[in-house]
Design a binder for these strands. Structure first.
Lengths: 215, 215
DNA sequence: TTGATATGACTCCTGAGTAAGTTACCATAG
DNA sequence: CTATGGTAACTTACTCAGGAGTCATATCAA
């Protein structure tokens, strides 16, 4: 007799491969449109599979999202660790870190918004992963901000907290601005950041910028 | 016979009053939970009325939201115009503007997120209202940023664009940080901003800060 | 009686999640 | 070399909940 369900059955794709494929497609969809605006059916269609397979492998929409966020945080954290190993300090470290982010994000810019999106549901584990990522990426910021205020004779801890929030958002803004200008290469954007920081804080020691990529 | 629909009929509330009430309640709900997470039924219940009345008066959920956003933008823009009239310039103008925002937001902090939320649908008219608000609130930022870069010998227009994005987010971050610390009065927060700006840009002329509220 | 204010009880759609079954592959028994 | 059965990969066709929006009707004041 003829096939009643012609598309059923294995397509010869191993679970690990399929999971990786779904993860990549879902990350892009979630990152570009946001959690709420992305349906599981959309992702399934983009991957060329059916919805239940996603539920089989990831349990729920939220579970899939959590894996995407954790994966993105791992990529970005690994990049941070790499740049931190260069031992740069002070303002130059901010530049080196930004440079690393630009280069890590270039092939998959959408993961940036995954880590940033605040409207998405967050289970406890995801929350902790993200908190660790933020601690790591802004570790140097904490010291830099404290020192800046101390130099100005200010050691109020609440002032430091507010200033740190400002600094973190400057960092985020520079990355987001860059993502909004896709014609700009990571190298160009890094040079731009150097010019902007210099305009506010004065010249940066060129020797300290040795770890930065050049065009 | 007994009443089939005991709650129907007028409650003696004129349309204009009811609209104002719905607007206030919806603004708070949308601002605190976001557009997507707020249902029309929620708003109706909070207002003590039924859903169809909201549809009668505002046409749709999106229509209601648009009115909320426009109302919020009007309040904030009016505050900007008021502070702008003081004629302050430079960094002191930033402080004066922030001070005005803190005071305008104190009685209804939630409207801040209404203006900020990017996940909500925006018809053309709303878009234009918001754009006008942003132009107005950041007008002084454009000049300040250009001047800062020019002083550093930089007149690249793209650098100026990026720097303006950074500045606008510094402004937003300071307001948002304050909203996250509700125990802090507007006056205290303004003084904090003065300290933070001073630490980065040097002392601000006290005479220029005459328009600022004091504790 | 008319029109403004108001509501209960719907319809309809979207999107998460599931039940139950289908196909392909592979190991092992005969 | 073929049967048999177990398991992994995969799908169709649902259920179900929640929320936007509507219809017909009810009350009240002038």
């Amino acid at each position: 007799m003829t096939s009643v369900r012609p598309n059923a059955g294995t397509k010869g794709v191993a679970r690990a491969d399929r999971e990786a494929q779904i993860l990549a497609i879902a990350s892009r969809a979630f990152g570009e449109a946001g959690f709420a605006a992305t349906s599981v059916a959309d992702i399934a269609e983009a991957a060329g599979i059916s919805k239940p397979l996603i539920y089989n492998y990831f349990g729920s929409k939220e579970g899939l999202y959590a894996v995407c966020v954790q994966h993105a945080a791992e990529i970005l954290t690994a990049e941070i660790e790499r740049t931190a190993a260069s031992g740069t300090v002070g303002l130059a470290r901010a530049v080196v870190t930004l440079d690393g982010m630009f280069r890590a994000l270039a092939p998959q810019p959408w993961i940036w918004h995954l880590v940033l999106d605040t409207t998405a549901p967050r289970d406890e584990a995801t929350q902790e992963v993200l908190a660790a990522y933020e601690r790591r990426i802004f570790a140097f910021g904490v010291e830099g901000v404290s020192e800046l205020l101390r130099l100005a004779g200010n050691d109020d801890p609440t002032d430091t907290s507010a200033m740190r929030a400002v600094w973190e958002n400057v960092f985020r803004t520079l990355v987001t601005w860059w993502l909004d200008h896709p014609e700009e290469s990571p190298e160009e954007m890094t040079q731009r950041c150097i010019r902007l920081f210099s305009a506010v804080f004065g010249e940066i020691d060129p020797a300290a910028l040795a770890a930065v990529s050049t065009a």
